[in-house]
Design a protein around this nucleic acid. Sequence first.
DNA 1: CGGAATCCTGCCTGATACTG
DNA 2: CAGTATCAGGCAGGATTCCG
Lengths: 127, 127
Amino acid sequence: MKCVGHHDLVEYDAFLAACPSRQLLDRISGKWVTLALCALDDGPQRYSELARRVDGVSQKMLTQTLRSLERDGLLTRTVTPTVPVTVTYELTDLGRSLQGTVAALRAWAQDHMDQVAGHRQEFDLRT
Amino acid sequence: MKCVGHHDLVEYDAFLAACPSRQLLDRISGKWVTLALCALDDGPQRYSELARRVDGVSQKMLTQTLRSLERDGLLTRTVTPTVPVTVTYELTDLGRSLQGTVAALRAWAQDHMDQVAGHRQEFDLRT
DNA sequence: CGGAATCCTGCCTGATACTG
DNA sequence: CAGTATCAGGCAGGATTCCG
């Protein structure tokens, strides 16, 4: 389903619950997607490398996240038939087009942590 | 807990599960936060206006989202004692500093929906 | 090594009803 | 109008086991 806009232009609107871009927004917003894409900014990496960098992620969630990103065309999954097998993940051009935004999200969280913590204290005292 | 980096500088790293910035990243990544902040970019708005714009959000989640954003200092909540009561939400400077990033996230979802849909079809055929 | 499959728990989320 | 309270379901997410 597409959402018809002005001038007969067909467009998407994530504000609308039924619009596919809403579900896509749901998929790409989430810490695991953000951290996985951030980690892959350093170049192609193996599964175990990603698991180590994205601290605290379970095998299940990492696999699930990477699979959905592969399905959506944001990264490629390359299997090298060594023994044991080597699996490499790499951002595609599409993935790189989103990388800057999720990196900004992560940077914001890190850069404004102190400010947010201050507001929280103040808020909790007022109530 | 802060994460000690080079040169005795204290910094945060969202890659680390125990770092506060990880939890902050978790809070600000999510469709409801994204859509709420996007909606508030048009200026101060009332609760009912936000509920209408952010289609599909339940009262519970909207209230919960706005409350956490208020607590974190990203927006202000102003109660005007009319009858019935009027409640207005407005972005703070801190909230505005994040607004661009979440807007980019929403824009990406809308702008790349077709590409992603194509990749999905191809992926599903290959498997 | 890089998963897949299974089970299980919790909390996220939505629906409903009620209130100042 | 702008919530709060409560209940109930589903799925995110962890732990464990097994496989190529």
